[in-house]
Design a protein around this nucleic acid. Sequence first.
DNA 1: GCGACAG
DNA 2: ATCTTGTCGC
Length: 227
Amino acid sequence: MPHVIAELAAERLWPDDPAEARALQDRLAPRVRVEPLDPDGVRLVAGLDVSYTESAVVAAAVVLDARTLEVVETATERAEPAFPYVPGLFAFRELPPLLAALGRLASEPDVYVCDGFGLAHPRRFGLACHLGVLLDRPVLGAAKTAFVGEAAPPAPERGSVTELRADGEVVGRCLRVQDGVKPVYVSVGHRVDLDAACELVLRASPRYRICEPVRRADRLSRDVLGR
DNA sequence: GCGACAG
DNA sequence: ATCTTGTCGC
């Protein structure tokens, strides 16, 4: 058993099956904290992503200077898939390799950006929340498609937003980061609020739909996977 | 019961 | 996520 999973299991933070996984999410969800975070105080932003094959998974963490968006440091982890992909249980597939990669970073990012959701989740505990609670660090989620809830399309200008609502509550925002380009979905993971999360994603997306930290992590994980 | 369903 | 060619556009 991989070290990261053994450590989580020792803390009763690793499920044996989907039913246990859902129960664990319900147990950890109350630990999520939504709080203000000053975007101007963020110096280092880490982008996270994972690429797959049938038999291998590669996680990548890329730390960028939040102001210049230059790469400061990178780390990767190659592993065997430890959990199947089940919508809503995404974190159990990506968390182990991500935690291992993050453990190799020398720097301490001020905020982490996940390719997925935080509170915009059936049990309000997506990957960004899960990672945030385990690290007790600011984490936010930026996804390419919606998973739960509905959002009206934002105005065509960069910076426009609409609320992403599910079960009558605001669980995130649909954010247009480029003029006339399909929007992305931002949600809080931990120790950040929606305003800061959207501002950080906007600042980290000077050119493309996918913010630079995640784009870099996506490319790196793909390269290491070897294709 | 049926369809939808982050990556 | 991944499987996949050409093609339109800056």
